Computed example of a mutant assay.
Amino acid sequence: MSSVAEKLQRKSQRTVATKQVRLKLVYIDFWSAVKFSFLVAVCLGIILVVATILLWIVLNSTGIFGSLNDIMKDILGNPEFDIASDFSLGQVALFAIVVALLNTVVGTALGAIAALLYNFSVRITGGLLVGFTNN
């Protein structure tokens, strides 16, 4: 009589046949591509705004703006020059938000154009062949 452990050991020794499936990607849904590219562009825009604000905070807290202000006063010879007033946190954050909004619009449009171009090129090339296995 064999135990349950021996039966399980015999089962695990059998080789499992790997199945391979080949599929062709012949169509990308336009609205799905637009929604996906919009979400990716919004995420990148949020990252841009947060990174810009953090970079400004680090530069301000380390005193680099003060050193740069002194260097620019020496170079320009203008004692009234103040880089902190020209690049305040509000102005830098507003500029980053405007750039993020423009990137969102452009990124969404590029995603839509890429989906259209792929769908048009599939008519000529036949699609992208993708292989899957069950490893």
Results as ranks from 00 to 15, higher is better:
Ile124Gly: 03
Leu76Thr: 13
Ala33Gln: 06
Tyr118Ser: 09
Thr62Glu: 12
Asn60Cys: 10
Val92Trp: 05
Trp31Asn: 09
Ile83Gly: 11
Gly45Met: 02
Ile47Gly: 09
Thr108Glu: 13
Ile64Met: 11
Ser61Cys: 01
Val50Gly: 04
Leu117Lys: 13
Ala115Gly: 05
Leu117Asn: 10
Gly45Ser: 02
Ile64Trp: 05
Leu101Phe: 08
Ser12Tyr: 01
Asn103Tyr: 10
Ile57Thr: 05
Gly66His: 05
Val92Phe: 08
Lys35Leu: 06
Val106Pro: 07
Leu117Phe: 09
Ser61Pro: 00
Ala109Arg: 08
Ser85Tyr: 13
Gln13Ile: 03
Asp82Trp: 08
Val16Ala: 00
Trp31Gly: 04
Leu25Ser: 13
Phe87Asp: 13
Lys24His: 11
Phe95Leu: 11
Arg22Gln: 14
Ser61Val: 01
Ile124His: 08
Phe87Arg: 10
Arg10Pro: 12
Val92His: 07
Asp70Thr: 01
Trp56Asn: 10
Asp70Pro: 00
Leu44Trp: 02
Lys11His: 01
Ala93Asn: 06
Ser12Phe: 04
Val105Arg: 03
Ser121Phe: 13
Leu59Ile: 10
Gly111Ile: 03
Ile28Gly: 12
Ile113Asn: 14
Glu80Arg: 11
Leu59Asn: 06
Val106Cys: 02
Gln20Asn: 02
Ile46Ser: 05
Asp74Met: 00
Ile28Gln: 12
Ala115Phe: 08
Ile47Glu: 06
Gly45Ile: 01
Ala84Asn: 14
Leu48His: 07
Ala93Tyr: 09
Ile28Glu: 13
Ser12Val: 03
Ile71Gln: 07
Phe36Trp: 10
Phe65Ser: 14
Leu44Met: 04
Asn60Glu: 15
Leu25Asp: 12
Val34Cys: 14
Val58Cys: 00
Ser85Arg: 15
Phe120Asn: 15
Lys35Ile: 01
Leu25Gly: 15
Thr62Ile: 12
Val26Arg: 14
Val58Met: 07
Tyr118Gly: 10
Asn103Lys: 05
Gly63Met: 04
Phe81Gly: 12
Asp82Lys: 11
Ala51Phe: 04
Leu76Met: 12
Phe81His: 12
Gly107Lys: 05
Asp82Tyr: 10
Gln20Leu: 03
Ser88Trp: 07
Val50Pro: 01
Phe65Gln: 15
Ala114Cys: 04
Asn69Trp: 00
Ile46Asp: 07
Ala112Pro: 14
